[in-house]
Computed example of a mutant assay.
Amino acid sequence: MIIERIVGNIAYADVDNRHVERVYLRSDDLVKRVQRVTTDYGNEIGIRLTERKNLTDGDILYLDDRNTIVVHVMADDLLVIRPVNMTQMGDIAHQLGNRHLPAQFEGDEMLVQYDYLVEELLKQLDIPYERTERKVKQAFRHIGHQHG
């Protein structure tokens, strides 16, 4: 089976009376438009998205009267950074920007994928943080940039 489009998202769809199979993906796989995956029931499927849209947790890849296949994003090893003031936020944002590290924001928290060097930096700058496993809503995207 080749999946070419996202049918919807399980958060907004009624799939109560259907058999649900899950495709477990790492967050960095969400940006891949072409990939081969296996469901939790051992069924192999190909994904070849025709739209330029990234996958997200809960996306429905297949839906019929009896079955559905849903994307399940696995938790990432993250540093959850909680600056207590604008100076700390500016310091860490500047440092992470210099390293071209992608970050995401949820409320007052900055999320970055775990890196021991970043953890050491946070300790040096005395910025509150926590290392945790957490699902992210979207893939961490590296932004291409060259210094001129």
Rank of each mutant, 00 (worst) to 15 (best):
V23A: 05
Y24S: 04
L25V: 00
L25W: 02
L25Q: 01
L25K: 03
S27V: 01
S27E: 04
D28R: 10
D28M: 02
D29W: 02
D29G: 03
R33H: 09
Q35W: 04
V37I: 12
T39V: 06
T39D: 10
D40N: 13
Y41M: 13
G42D: 08
E44R: 15
E44G: 13
I45C: 09
G46D: 14
I47R: 00
I47L: 06
R48H: 10
K53Q: 03
N54D: 14
N54I: 00
L55F: 02
L55V: 00
L55T: 00
D57A: 01
D57W: 00
D57R: 00
D59C: 02
D59M: 04
I60S: 01
L61C: 07
L61K: 05
Y62M: 08
D64Y: 12
D64I: 01
D64S: 13
R66A: 15
R66T: 07
R66P: 01
R66H: 12
N67S: 14
T68H: 12
V71L: 13
V71Q: 13
H72P: 07
H72R: 13
M74K: 15
D76R: 13
D76E: 14
D76Y: 03
L78A: 02
V80L: 14
I81W: 04
I81M: 10
R82Y: 10
R82L: 09
P83A: 10
P83E: 10
V84R: 13
M86S: 15
T87Q: 09
M89D: 15
M89Q: 14
I92W: 05
A93R: 08
A93W: 04
H94P: 03
H94G: 11
H94E: 13
Q95F: 15
Q95N: 08
R99P: 05
H100K: 10
A103R: 11
Q104D: 09
Q104C: 05
E106H: 11
G107A: 07
G107W: 05
D108L: 05
D108N: 13
D108V: 06
E109P: 02
E109R: 00
M110P: 01
M110W: 01
L111S: 02
L111T: 00
L111C: 08
Q113L: 11
D115L: 10
D115E: 14
V118K: 01
E119I: 08
E119M: 07
E120F: 06
E120N: 06
L121H: 00
L122N: 04
L122G: 05
K123N: 06
K123D: 09
K123P: 00
Q124D: 10
Q124R: 04
L125F: 08
L125H: 06
I127N: 03
P128D: 09
P128H: 09
R131V: 07
T132Y: 07
E133V: 02
E133L: 13
E133H: 12
E133F: 12
R134C: 07
R134E: 09
R134T: 02
A139M: 02
A139S: 14
F140R: 05
F140M: 02
H142K: 08
H142D: 06
H142A: 03
I143F: 08
I143V: 14
